[in-house]
């Protein structure tokens, strides 16, 4: 079980969180034209990386905040966690 540092609550066990996918995906702005390709990339296409990966988690059974977690998908090492509003560096 992973041990994730919620930027609001501190170190918590994985079972308090739910996984939310790739954190680098940006939702296209509402009301703007977008090509099929770009839209499909946003909705469906994800890289399945081995290695460092920024991902979203929600602290569901805690503060309910969505957070950003930099994790190695191979080793599960967690390098950094950020609040929702903080930009991935």
């Amino acid at each position: 079980m992973l041990h994730i540092k919620c930027p609001h609550c501190g170190m918590r066990s994985q079972n308090e969180f739910s996984y939310g996918g790739d954190a680098s995906v940006k939702r296209p702005e509402l009301g703007k034209d977008i090509s099929d390709q770009d839209w499909n990339n946003f909705v469906y296409n994800r890289k399945s990386l081995r290695g460092k990966h920024w991902e979203l988690w929600q602290h569901l059974a805690g503060c309910r905040q969505w957070i950003k977690v930099e994790r190695d998908t191979g080793s599960h090492e967690i390098f950094k966690t950020l609040k929702a509003e903080e930009e991935i560096s």
């Binding site: 739910s18 939310g20 939702r27 979203l56 929600q58 569901l60 309910r64 905040q65 969505w66 929702a84 509003e85």
Partner: peptide, 13 residues
């Protein structure tokens, strides 16, 4: 609820 929180916190803060 999670869906609404997602958009409020991440997409339209």
């Amino acid at each position: 609820l999670s869906h609404l929180e997602y958009y409020l916190q991440l997409v339209w803060p």
